[in-house]
Design a binder for these strands. Sequence first.
DNA 1: CCATATATCGAAAATATTTTCAGTATATGA
DNA 2: TCATATACTGAAAATATTTTCGATATATGG
Lengths: 120, 120
Amino acid sequence: MAYEKKIPVDLDCPLRLTMSLIESKWKSCILDELRNGKPQRPSEIHKLLPEAAPRVLDLQLKEMVEDGLVEKTIYPELPPRSEYRITPLGLSLIPIIDQMLKWGQDHFDIFEKKYGAGKG
Amino acid sequence: MAYEKKIPVDLDCPLRLTMSLIESKWKSCILDELRNGKPQRPSEIHKLLPEAAPRVLDLQLKEMVEDGLVEKTIYPELPPRSEYRITPLGLSLIPIIDQMLKWGQDHFDIFEKKYGAGKG
DNA sequence: CCATATATCGAAAATATTTTCAGTATATGA
DNA sequence: TCATATACTGAAAATATTTTCGATATATGG
């Protein structure tokens, strides 16, 4: 079969749906950075997540806008300016992000010991 | 740079750590299927998740065993028999799975309307 | 002897994701 | 004029993931 654009979200089951919205490498981090509700410019987000290539953030933010987790405002100025802000829908995912954050904190040591520095 | 095996889990931050343990296509579903604590044979898991290729479940279960989310018992019988059972560590992720499940249920309609049958 | 069930594996093919790179555009300030 | 900052894009390269396929092994039942 020829290449076909993947379905944006996974409607097979509610669990897969939720996962598919946030499982890309940087989406959960982006949500975490925008959680305070403050609009952020792309360049600011890049600074907050310096390990992510700007292009990836662009692409992932675009999907998040499409999915309704984030909204974008473009100001017709020069040099160009735009801002991303978390939506109520995106905000409703924050408790999940929080729980994952906490789980990761609580269990970090186990995985540090197992896989960390030189244990690969 | 030559191909190099990826780091098994992401130790960059607690959030990425948690995500990296469950973000593969079928891992969250596998956890959900094993949540009741009953050991399951590979062939049973395949039946529960018929859309996943057996090979993928093999590979993902192997990683989950390595990560300590699931444990495996091999019975030295013929024909071969083995069982996978969720561990306490895996069980500790179930509240997150539950929250994602619930979120997906609560918001399914939005995404059904947006992306479902013919709206692609 | 042959098909079936069972679990597992290696290898390759197919797909998807992430990253890099070079380009668009335009105001500002050296 | 030239570098810089800003946001954005297309294309291709690099990587990763998922799927398919064919193979191993061996008891059981036809």
